[in-house]
Each structure stands twice: as C-alpha cells, then as structure tokens.
Design a protein around this nucleic acid. Structure first.
Length: 361
DNA sequence: TCCTCTAACACTTTTGAATCGC
DNA sequence: AGCGATTCAAAAGTGTTAGAGG
C-alpha cells in the first residue's frame, strides 16, 4: 500500500487546526435547538457543514471524512415547546461515512479554501442503498470530521486520524420540524425555503380549500419567535440537569482521546453526555471545540461495522463505508476516550480499509 | 387520542446544455 | 476555432400539510 511521504512528525500532526465556517449561523440554530430533517430519500443539512483547515503539510495528501455521532443515548419528543427525553435511544443504524469529494488532495488544496459538505444527505431509511447517512428520528447527533493522511481513498491507513467536532453543530434528527422557531430560522437563511416564505403557511393554491391547517400557523410561528430571547428549548427534565452535570464533569477531564471506541463495552448509564452544550464565547476552532463522544453509542457501531462491509455495488455509483473493525480497547484507553476537543488517533491496529466517496450522488 | 412518518405539493435555486458574439 | 457570456429548461431542493399507521 502506498503511503504519503514520510508522515508528519507528531508535533506537526498535532498542529492541524479545523475551524467551523458559518459558526454564527450554527450558533443561532443551536441556541434554539437545531433540528435536521431526515427523509426516506435523504435530505441535505442546513446549516451546511463547512470547515476550514490549517496546519496540514502542504504537499502531503489527505482524505477528509465526516460521520455522525449520537450526542447522547436518549430518544426525545417535542412537547409543549421544548424537547423532552422519552427513553433510551434505539440501537444505532448502520454507520455511514461521507468522504469529501476532493479527497484525496494535498494539504495546500485543503487549506486554500473552506471545505463544504454540501452534498451530505441524511436519511431515516435503514435500508438506504444510496449511501446517505442513516440516523434515527428524534435522536440527537453531531457531525464529526476526520483528517487522514493518505494518498488514495483506497489506501487509507487510519494511522493517525485527526478527529474534530463542534458543540454548536449538535442537532436533533426529525422527520418534520417540531420547533417553529427553527422553521423560521431556516426560511430566513435557506434560499430553497423561499418558496414558502410568503404568507406564513405558504399554502399552495391547491390547498387553499383544504380543511383547517395547521398544526402550526404563521401566527404560532410569530408568537414563538417573539418569545423571550435565550429561551432554551432543550431537554428540560430532571434528566437534563443530570446531563448538564455530567457534561460539566467531562469538561474537567478533557484530554486527547482515542478514536471512537468502536468495540467498546460500557454501561449506558455511565458517562453520558448530552445537551445542552453550553455555548460560551470561544474560538470556533478545533482546539477549543468539544463534543465528548457518546459512549453508549459505540457498542452498536462496533456491531454494524462488522456486519456491514463497504458497499461496492451501489447501483448509482454511490458508495458508502462501514468502519473497519476496531480492536478492543484497554481499560486505560477506555477511560480516556470519552471526551475531547480534538481527537488525535493512532489506529495502528486497524486493518487497511478502502474508502469510497458518495459525494457525487 | 396522540405521535411519528410519508408523499404530494408549489415554488425557488442550481445546474448544465445550447446559443450567441467577439 | 476557441473562448467567455448569456439564456433557458430541467433537475434538485425546500417547508407545509393532510392523512396513514402504530
């Protein structure tokens, strides 16, 4: 297998920096409680995942990938204008990884301009054959970005992997918008939503004679949007208080962590992290970002990676990935991988694994 | 009855091929 | 002939909504 020229030294590897673009927009959504529509046929993300990179070796090749990680191990429902926990999360669907269409490319290329993950699509169809990222509705996730030095997507060695995530990108996957404030934000910022901008309900003419609307009317939206700023529509139960407590405790023990603990067994009741991820003033770059990995999520992934080999026969040229199986972690590894701003990973034990992009689907 | 999900809808934006002018 | 600008139709994508189904 071909590798890039002599890998960067550890210092250089550690100097890779990722910055979230449109962070203000993400922050706006996050303060309201970001929701992402997922559909059977796949829906794009909005806000868009867009990041910029620095600190790469200019002439070394890199593969950039993104996947979705459960933010916690709960299932939610929208009740009385806020999200409530209704139980434990369902087993995770097959893991899919999106590889940036430019991959592989040189560090120069990646650093020249921001990377957009425009074509990522989210679906709730666990039988999806198009390679979209599969999520469960009413569950919370956050995107995670991987920077891997490799000459070819077919020869990724996963050694080392730099992983980045951003607290404000956490979202709830939904099949229909629950929070009207999110709808308004999307309509205000997403050009495709303009079709529905007029008239609040944006009722198509054919529907004008239909019977009463409207789970939610324009008036509802307006009223809600006028509600006091800072109204946090996040989990409001006593559980969330515990969650916050857990979150605070995890922040204290932040350190460099290992790659997701696929194969890790852990008591789901332990070390759970979830929203609200407090958004204080901070620099929107990886070095200060933190989205602790969800521990309870990982055992499922381990199973799926084993069960779902990389798709190689997608009918439309699309490809998706499963993850390589990961060797069981030691107790020490276990204890360090629950949290982290930025994960630098040494996955030397992994098998070499071909990667395929489905970015052109 | 409540909740979640799906499909159809009207509309906008994006994309890409075709055409034109220099 | 080659290139860039413009035009236009098709495709893609959007949130809303009613209704189905659990």
């Amino acid at each position: 297998m071909s590798r890039s020229p002599p890998a960067a030294d550890s210092c250089q590897q550690g100097c890779i920096r990722m910055t979230l673009e449109n962070a203000d927009l993400w922050k706006s959504f996050h303060s309201t409680g970001t929701e992402m529509i997922i559909t059977k046929h796949g829906r794009r993300m909005f806000p868009l995942c867009s990041v910029s990179l620095s600190g790469l070796q200019p002439f070394a090749n890199y593969v950039i990938m993104m996947d979705m990680v459960p933010a916690d191990s709960f299932k939610y429902k929208w009740k009385k204008e806020q999200w409530e926990i209704v139980g434990k999360a369902e087993p995770q669907p097959p893991c899919r990884i999106y590889m940036h269409p430019d991959s592989p490319a040189t560090g120069n290329h990646w650093m020249k301009q921001s990377l957009s993950f425009l074509k990522v699509k989210l679906t709730n169809n666990t039988l999806d054959q198009r390679g979209h990222i599969i999520l469960h509705s009413m569950h919370r996730y956050y995107p995670r970005f991987h920077v891997i030095q490799a000459d070819s997507p077919y020869t990724v060695c996963w050694d080392p992997v730099q992983t980045f995530s951003f607290p404000e990108t956490t979202f709830t996957a939904v099949t229909a918008y629950q929070n009207p404030m999110i709808t308004k934000l999307k309509i205000d910022h997403n050009p495709f939503a303009k079709a529905f901008r007029e008239g609040g309900t944006h009722s198509p003419s054919k529907r004008s004679n239909r019977s009463p609307p409207a789970k939610r009317t324009a008036m509802d939206v307006k009223a809600l949007c006028n509600s006091p700023p800072g109204l946090q529509r996040m989990p409001s139960t006593s559980q969330s208080a515990q969650i916050e407590k857990n979150h605070a405790s995890t922040q204290q023990s932040l350190k460099e962590v290992h790659f997701p603990a696929w194969g890790l067994e852990q008591d789901p009741s332990e070390g759970l992290h979830t929203e609200p991820l407090e958004l204080h003033e901070y620099d929107y770059s990886c070095e200060e970002q933190m989205v602790p990995a969800s521990v309870a999520y990982q055992p499922y992934r381990s199973v799926e990676y084993t069960r779902f080999p990389p798709a190689s026969n997608d009918t439309d040229g699309a490809h998706s990935l499963g993850h390589p199986s990961h060797p069981p972690l030691t107790t020490a590894e276990h204890s360090t991988q629950q949290h982290g701003y930025h994960h630098q990973v040494n996955t030397a034990g992994w098998t070499q694994y071909p990667l395929f992009s489905y970015s052109c689907w």
